[in-house]
Write a protein that binds this DNA or RNA. Structure first.
Lengths: 361, 361
DNA sequence: TTGTAAGCGTTATCAG
DNA sequence: CTGATAACGCTTACAA
């Protein structure tokens, strides 16, 4: 309103009748105990608000040798939410958390981003002067290693590469998956199939492990069909992979899909085979990003992505703290999943033989 | 690898045996014709690459009085992709385009974001020193007005508030919707329903207009049921609103849903009513963000959001150009939609009476 | 407790 | 065509 160019600390100083450095002290030392007398602080603050002053973030950053910019390296080059829901959702939460903590986030396309390919990831990060890097479920250790070797603070989120020693905030699938299996077993299901990603990635393996451990608790391990493993989290692959399963003579009565988009593929196969959900087949997904919006609304294991975003920023902030001892080991955090019941599960069509538990409701 | 602190222009100057200012000239005047002799330019560039030098973005920004930060104000506070697909997708494209043009984007939560509510939108933008603001389909003119009044360059994207004079890049629904209707009519459909948002927003109205104009071209206006209007783009509202339509004695044979998430609600209603798509009901959506991933894969009118993002950045860049005459009127761009056929349409179950056109296929 | 002064790494103006 | 020199707006010893 008043003047086009924003007021500077010099303007405030002049109006408050103090030196410019004092103004800076008032606005900087706000966290620690006051380093400036209450009286002058009052005057400075009054002058500042009357002039509509706020410290210039760029000038501050330049002086402090901190850009305030974080890089997010997602697991895949994002395309559309249905194809890869987690990167979309996580990007949102991370960005939001970062903003609240005074950071900006730039998203560095994964492999294939032209921005990166011309020169590689590390030079790109250097040019942009990022303060730290957050990897979202990196598929290989190489990129992570390079960034660590370059001396940049790194946090790996959701599903880390443990081969590289960095701070991590990972998601523990066990609680949610355990609850999901308990729920299905309580309904009377005995043959529950698993559709998820195979391959060498530990965290994919973790989901399967959690699934099998939960079944084992109910002494059901032998009754379970082999896991249906796909090469990537994609609608089409899940669709193609699950079709043979549905054509089996004694097909499962419930399916656990280790991702919302895998569930989408499974749903397609079910619709085409005219198998109704949940009457003829119960279905549970993992992610809970758009599970609630499908038909029927899908029971799902929810990943706490908002928490993960928040924690990732906390970890990076800790790493950036100059007071932090250099030899302190990196922190490893764990965020629990939880299970949400909706309308995609019910007791199986005909109780299996030797069923000793009465189906619920 | 070499040294922790990045090399500065002074280092480069020393190594190349020139003054620091010359280094700056080499890196700044890259766009215009060379202001520095080829020989020295060569030497400077060599020294720079050997030192791994690149200009510090923050220092440059501070000096040029340009933060390089753009604010994106989405139509709604984003939650999940299925609830509001367009903001998710547009945010991705805009951010990506911005990055390629050297800008960062911060997303300012719409109404209700705590970041904003403490002080209001304009003070927030001022504190962050954003260079410009991009509104994504603003629902009211007030916010836009305030930002314009504050003197910030503004671009309105997708569906603008024309009450406020700003640069705009909007999406023209007519080509895509026209093609969709042509397609349905060619298949033999005569009763086509419209499900979309009502209310005073011109661009919602535009979709309905395009729909009705397309029908009129086929002299079908009278045959169409009243449009089903919902108050907001939401799965639940579409579901609730479309149910009475399906219960009608002579229900439509095809439905056009003016948003992917509206289509999701319509699909739910259809499934529950055991009306099969496309055999008993053809369905076309608008947005084409996750239409292809549903079952059946939905024919959809695609919005060119990637183009819109690119153009929005172009417009903002033009506005930021100091050489631009002050009285030059704001540009108004238009991006065309197009129609994508998939597996959610087919000829209607029984041809309507008086049908003179032979159904295709 | 407060003021002075030296940068942070650029760009821009103005001589030469 | 090139080199000094003064900002850009702030933080941070160090001095008073």
């Amino acid at each position: 309103m008043e003047d086009m160019r924003g007021a500077t600390s010099v303007d405030v100083a002049r109006r408050a009748g103090v030196s410019q450095a004092t103004v800076s002290l008032v606005f900087t030392g706000t966290s620690g105990r006051t380093r400036v007398s209450a009286a002058t602080r009052e005057r400075v603050l009054a002058a500042a608000t009357s002039l509509g002053y706020s410290p210039h973030p760029l000038a501050r950053a330049l002086r402090q040798r901190r850009s305030g910019i974080l890089a997010l390296v997602p697991r895949v080059h994002r395309t559309t939410p249905a194809v890869a829901p987690v990167p979309f959702q996580f990007s949102l939460y991370l960005t939001r958390a970062a903003l609240h903590h005074g950071f900006h986030v730039i998203e560095v396309g994964a492999a294939g981003d032209p921005v990166v390919t011309e020169g590689g990831l590390v030079p790109f990060l250097r040019r942009r002067r990022v303060d730290g890097v957050i990897f979202d479920g990196p598929d290989n250790a190489r990129d992570v290693e390079r960034v660590v070797a370059a001396g940049l603070p790194v946090v790996q989120a959701i599903r880390p590469q443990f081969a590289v020693e960095t701070a991590t905030i990972m998601v523990d699938p066990a609680p949610g998956i355990g609850a999901a299996i308990d729920h299905l077993v309580a309904l009377g299901h005995r043959r529950i199939a698993f559709v998820g990603r195979g391959g060498p990635y530990p965290t994919d393996r973790t989901r399967l492990d959690a699934f099998q451990a939960a079944l084992a608790r109910h002494a059901l391990v032998a009754a379970t069909a082999d896991p249906v493993l796909v090469a990537d989290y994609s609608v089409d692959q899940a669709y193609a992979a699950v079709r043979p399963l549905l054509a089996q003579e004694t097909r499962p009565t419930a399916i656990f899909a280790a991702g919302d988009n895998l569930a989408l593929g499974v749903l397609r196969a079910l619709y085409e085979a005219r198998i109704r959900v949940p009457d003829e087949m119960s279905l549970v997904s993992y992610d809970d990003i758009f599970a609630a919006d499908l038909y029927p609304p899908l029971a799902s294991v929810a990943q706490p992505l908002a928490d993960v975003g928040e924690q990732a920023i906390t970890l990076i902030t800790a790493l950036l703290d100059p007071a932090r001892p250099k030899d302190q080991p990196a922190a490893h955090l764990l965020a629990a999943t939880h299970f949400v019941v909706r309308r995609s599960t019910c007791p199986p069509p005909r109780p299996s033989a030797g069923n000793q538990t009465a189906p619920a409701g």
